[in-house]
Design a protein around this nucleic acid. Structure first.
Length: 331
DNA sequence: CGCACCGA
DNA sequence: TCGGTGCGG
């Protein structure tokens, strides 16, 4: 992926840092004032690594969530509250493993953390974009407009939003990951290409959206009871659309939690904005990065300085190369 | 999650 | 150079 730009769902990435960068008992990294810094550590070091590998990340931040997502966001809030209670209980009985698990599950990103993250990226000269609504949709839009080579996310939504190329597990270290236990597994980056997927499946993007709606999406998480990936795909493949399946008596559209037309529209016509010009690397503001990380949040100066040096070298090479221009469309 | 360090 | 470990903030 050298010389490529990847539009990354920032919330998705930062949230994962926040959940994962913790001590075995679930304590996150904090500065001397007790403020959480896990997200800054993850964002900083991973971004430096990506730049060193010649990948330019474009971080896309969420805006106002669509009204339809309200229920799901409320549900997630409740799950987090329960996780918080489970964390307290695990702490009482000194169950360190459960502590970590529930601390990760109850992690939440504050507005302050989002502001800090944007400030850090700005100081690093790394482009970021504010989405009007869903970050995932805007990241896909930037890609579709030819301003990034792919979308980077752990979620599959961008494919439904029409992104041609999705990168999952975008890390440099080829890092290990724990499913639930203390078992670490090798995780490799994964490239998914929409047109290849659709060709192999023999369906259109509209039909893939129908499959997703049966299985469940952020806007209607339950989907239709009884439908997982296999049955959903078979049904759509056989009848062509959810309406046709309903007419054949194989499906009751009122089993969807939300109106079908509205659900489809969320993926086919998401609220996105064009971005002006190219999304390129800017200048590294060494002073600001040091002030933010070292002075304000007690990062180790030598570590930050050495990462900054690696980054500056990488960025000058990247900006010098011609691969950076807007020609990196997928065609 | 990623860095630094260590021993093989 | 690689995998394991412990700490980072």
């Amino acid at each position: 992926m050298k010389g490529k730009k990847i539009s990354i769902d920032a919330y998705n990435a930062i949230y994962q840092f926040l959940a994962a960068i913790r001590q075995p008992d679930g304590t996150p990294l904090v500065d001397s004032k007790g403020r959480v810094t896990s997200h800054l550590s993850g964002l900083f070091y991973r971004t430096v690594n990506l730049l060193e590998e010649g990948v330019t990340p474009i971080y896309v931040f969420d805006g106002k969530p669509p009204e339809m997502k309200r229920g799901e966001l409320e549900r997630r809030r409740q799950v987090k509250e329960e996780a918080k209670l489970k964390y307290e209980k695990a702490k009482e009985r000194g169950d360190v493993q459960s502590q970590r698990k529930y601390a990760a599950a109850s992690a939440y990103l504050t507005d302050e953390m989002v502001r800090q993250s944007k400030e850090l990226l700005k100081a690093m000269g790394v482009p970021h974009v504010q989405a009007p609504a869903e970050g995932e949709a805007e990241a896909a839009h930037i890609h579709i407009q030819g301003k990034s080579w792919a979308v980077g996310s752990q979620d599959y939504d961008s494919l439904l939003f029409g992104a041609e190329r999705l990168i999952r597990n975008l890390t440099v270290t080829g890092r290990r990951k724990l499913p639930n236990k203390e078992v670490y597994v090798e995780i490799k980056p994964e490239i998914l290409e929409l047109s290849n997927m659709l060709r192999e499946l023999g369906i259109t993007r509209e039909q893939l959206i129908d499959v997703a709606l049966l299985v469940g999406t952020d806007y209607d998480p339950e989907g239709v009871r009884g439908f997982g990936p296999k049955r959903a795909y078979s049904l759509v493949k056989k009848y062509g659309s959810l309406e046709a399946a309903a007419r054949a008596g194989e499906l009751d559209l009122s089993d969807l939690g939300v109106d079908l037309r509205e659900l489809r529209d969320a993926f086919l016509n998401p609220r996105v904005e064009d971005v002006e010009g190219e999304l390129n690397l800017g200048e590294v503001d060494r002073e600001s990065v040091l002030r933010l990380l070292v002075e304000e949040h007690d990062f180790n100066e030598e570590r930050v300085a050495s990462a900054l040096s690696r980054m500056e070298r990488a960025m000058s090479e990247l900006k010098g190369s011609s691969k950076q221009s807007g020609l990196d469309k997928w065609f």
